[in-house]
Every structure is written in C-alpha cells, then in structure tokens.
C-alpha cells in the first residue's frame, strides 16, 4: 500500500490500562476512501483504538498518524482543529439530551461556523433527509428509538462534512431492520461523500458485507487482515474461530482454572 492511499497509519502501538496491555505493538494501515472494519472479541479495546485515533487517549509508545499528522503530538487547539475533520458515531449515539434533534445536528455548525441561520437550517434538513429523519426534527432525544438515535447521531457527525468517520459498534443492540438501514447508510455515505470510514464491530456478517478491507484484533495485535474474501480463506485457527463463532478453540471456553478433579477433591476450600 503506498503512503498516499493510507489515511490512518498506526505503527507499533502500545497502550496500557493500569497493568494490562491493551495493545502490544499493534500496526495497522487504514486506506483512504474505503470502508475498513476492525473486528475482534469484546474487550479487546476496539473502542479504545478509536479514542486513540481521535486523540482522546495517548499511547504509551508507537505512532498514530491521521492524514500525515501525528495525533498524539498535537497541542490541544491543533487537535481540536483536526477533530473537525473527523466524525465519530458513538455506541450510545451520545446525543445531547437537553436539546432537540434539530439542535443536535445544528450543534457543530453553530459552534464551528458563522453561517446564517437559514443556511444552517438548509444543511440540517439535508443531513436529516440523508438519514431519513427530516420529519423527526422536533423530537427530543429521549423520544427516539435506538436505531433513530444512531441515525440522528450519524447526521450530526456528518454535519461538517468530515473526511473520516468512525463508527463504534453501530449494529450492537439493533433490530434487523435498523441494522439493514445502518448497513445501507454507511456504504451509501461512504460512496457519495468520498469518506474514509472506520467501522469497529463484532457483528461479522454485517461488517463483512460493507467493508472493503477488514482486520481482526485480538490480544493487542492484528491476527488477520485483508479483503473480506482473503479473511474467509485465512488459515489461522483464531481467525476462523472468530469468523465462524465457534465456542471452543484457541480462545478457550473455560476460564483458566486448576483441573476439575483436583478442584473437587479439594473439599472445603472455596
């Protein structure tokens, strides 16, 4: 992969949470203009990876560059400028609960631009139309369903026409229709806006159906990467266990313990 086509470049990333090594020498390239899925079991720090890319967390060592800019070396104001070029869709949607749907989408425009009110209105309505919720503009976030919340949050994160959009577990807890809508919308947005999309998920079929490129992260490292077809043919047992959802394999069914016979013979000790 040449450097011009790489939008996010992660080299030898090490990140600790307390004593635990979340990432241990992780390297990953995310191509420009494509949908990249980062998959992996729960608790492998996929959300943490997005926060590292967004500069909300700092790595112990290693390098993360976004469009050639090293994220964790920036000063606060430069970081905030870089973030205007990124959108992030949080797992919970993270809509501001005290203002309406319309105001939520208008929020980044009001803060970062000096556009007149009628222009803001046009942009907000266009973004809401793109996610199919123009009619819901006057509802409060508490009145929206889970799927609608995510769509409004998506409209808000594309309000400033970012170059990169990061989706944190967009499919989790959604009914099949909402999932279908989100799948459709993510790939449509990516094509129509020329975005670079990063999708963090453990929903294998949905993710593989829209991504151009996927990688699987486990135990702090990339264990498999490539196009969806390449991944399906990956010989690694760990990759296959994850993709096919086998209950036992390299990731064991049992939490580490002494052999059961010894444990049972141990008598009164808990």
């Amino acid at each position: 992969m040449t450097s011009e086509s790489t939008f996010i470049d992660i080299q030898n990333l090490v990140f600790l949470r307390g004593e635990r090594r979340i990432f241990d020498g992780l390297s990953l390239q995310i191509p420009r203009g494509k949908v990249t899925a980062i998959m992996g079991p729960s608790g492998t720090g996929k959300t943490t990876l997005l926060k590292l890319i967004g500069g909300q967390l700092r790595p112990e060592s290693g390098r993360i560059t976004v469009d050639g800019i090293c994220v964790h070396k920036l000063r606060r104001s430069a970081l905030y400028d870089l973030r205007k070029r990124m959108g992030m869709l949080f797992q919970s949607g993270a809509l501001f609960s005290d203002i309406s749907t319309y105001e939520n989408v208008a929020f980044p425009l009001r803060v970062h631009t000096k556009l007149p009110e009628d222009m803001i209105r046009d942009i907000v309505l266009m973004k809401l139309e793109a996610v199919g919720l123009r009619g819901a503009r006057d509802l409060m976030p508490s009145e929206l369903s889970g799927g609608m919340t995510r769509r409004v949050a998506l409209a808000r994160s594309i309000a400033l026409d970012p170059e990169l959009i990061m989706y944190d577990e967009p499919f989790t807890g959604q009914d099949p229709i909402a999932k279908g809508v989100l799948v459709e919308m993510i790939s449509k947005l990516n094509r129509s806006m020329g975005l670079t999309s990063v999708l963090v998920s453990h929903d294998v079929p949905e993710s593989l159906s829209i991504c151009d490129y996927a990688c699987i992260v486990s135990n702090g490292q990339v264990i498999g990467a490539g196009t969806p077809e390449e991944l399906q043919d990956n010989p690694s047992e760990r990759v296959q266990q994850f993709l096919q959802g086998k209950p036992d394999g390299p990731v064991p069914f049992h939490y580490p313990a002494e052999p059961i016979a010894e444990d049972l013979a141990g008598g009164a000790q808990r």
């Binding site: 926060k51 967004g54 909300q56 606060r76 905030y80 400028d81 973030r83 205007k84 990124m86 959108g87 992030m88 949080f90 797992q91 919970s92 993270a94 809509l95 501001f96 609960s97 929020f107 980044p108 803060v111 970062h112 949050a153 994160s157």
Partner: peptide, 14 residues
C-alpha cells in the same frame, strides 16, 4: 456516562 462529553470533545468542542 452517555458519552456526551466524549462526543463533544470529538466534535472539537472543549
């Protein structure tokens, strides 16, 4: 808890 502060940061708002 509902990530509103995080999302604000990600929108470049302190």
């Amino acid at each position: 808890a509902t990530e509103q502060l995080s999302s604000m940061e990600m929108m470049g708002v302190d």
